[in-house]
Design a protein around this nucleic acid. Structure first.
Lengths: 197, 197
DNA sequence: TTGACAATAATGAACATTCATTCTATTTTC
DNA sequence: GAAAATAGAATGAATGTTCATTATTGTCAA
């Protein structure tokens, strides 16, 4: 009676089920503490399917990584298209990341709270991926257009994004109790004008 | 002929040999990618000794963690004793961390570039350890004494230390080519006065 | 100084377990 | 009815841990 079991008109595709299960498990307990069998159980899928779709455990993690990286890239592209000045682009990216930290916790956690080197090998490191190269482009332009202080590019990037990054981590770890969007204004003020009274 | 073999008057104690080997290996390839057998080989020590001294693989990592954490605590204590104003204390801590990033790379990497949850279980998280509680104390005092902008404590801490943290990571990963101490002045200026032109 | 003895530390082969992967059988799809 | 996808039991290599044996150190009486 296979037709009775099919409770949805459009059942979730197998590879999505796998990625969703893996995302949650990897974020909760870390890549190395999760076995393929656990992913298989949580996804309600056979081991064989996982190997057909992703080629193995590492393949699942890589699939997840590139999938999410792509979404971040689209986010950055959209911001670049809709905002013209580097300062506005910078602010909008932080704003959206803060929002996603509340609404898509595990996706943000996988991207910003995971050591990707655990499953990536040889691939370009995080900082050298498409969206993050574009982000450095924003910083570069901001300096060129005199919106940001002139500095070593990496120092400026660390200054502009390092503390946002840390805010996200502290929120994910539960240290910060307030939803990040509510802290956005104060945070941005500190970022742009400094911590001195 | 045991006397001929004894090439050093004071041979390095076994537990030091183990910790040193483990530090290098864990930093290079990550806790989960290193087997006890590799630590044993690199340390030139028997497996039994590792179990006698640390009780297992996790024990080695914990031993390393608490050893280094203790050194960081002493660093913070020394700074608290030698500098009176929160702003000076803050600056001195960053300065010393930047220096140690050049001179004691792996120690800094183990502390600031490792997911400690991989081997810590139940223990207080990084942010709640002695030295970091003291650091938040500095931020708190700085706000009270009107040296830093009044903010949510965690937001201020993220603003003050988040980008320093990121600088250290970028330097450890080789993205930043300049030794951090040379970037200290510019960095601190940005930190305190902001990124706006 | 010597030798006997106990206590402590070091050793590493053997063991037990975990877990990624393979592969053949089965089901579904077109 | 052929091709593609799924299933999951079986496999075996990797690796954390145990423990019986050996070596070292410290103590004290002769």
């Amino acid at each position: 009676m296979p037709y009775l079991k099919r409770d949805a008109l459009c059942p979730e595709p197998i590879d999505c089920k796998i990625l969703t299960a893996a995302l949650d498990l990897f974020v909760e307990r870390g890549f190395h503490n999760i076995s393929i069998h656990e992913v298989q159980q949580r996804a309600d899928v056979s081991i064989g399917s996982i190997y057909n779709h992703f080629g193995g455990k590492e393949g699942v993690a890589k699939g997840l990584y590139y999938h999410i990286l792509n979404e971040i890239d689209e986010l950055v592209n959209a911001v670049l298209a809709s905002h013209s000045s580097p300062k506005e682009q910078y602010q909008e990216i932080i704003k959206q990341l803060f929002e996603h930290t509340e609404t898509h916790r595990n996706i943000i956690a996988f991207m910003f709270h995971t050591k990707h080197s655990e499953f990536l090998s040889g691939e370009p490191v995080f900082c050298d991926t498409k969206p993050f190269v574009k982000i450095r482009g924003i910083v570069e332009q901001g300096i060129a257009q005199n919106e940001f202080l002139k500095q070593d590019l990496w120092v400026s990037t660390a200054a502009l994004f390092g503390s946002a990054y840390k805010m996200i981590q502290l929120r994910l770890d539960g240290n910060i109790k307030t939803p990040l969007p509510e802290l956005y204004d104060k945070f941005m003020n500190t970022q742009l004008n400094g911590m001195l009274v």
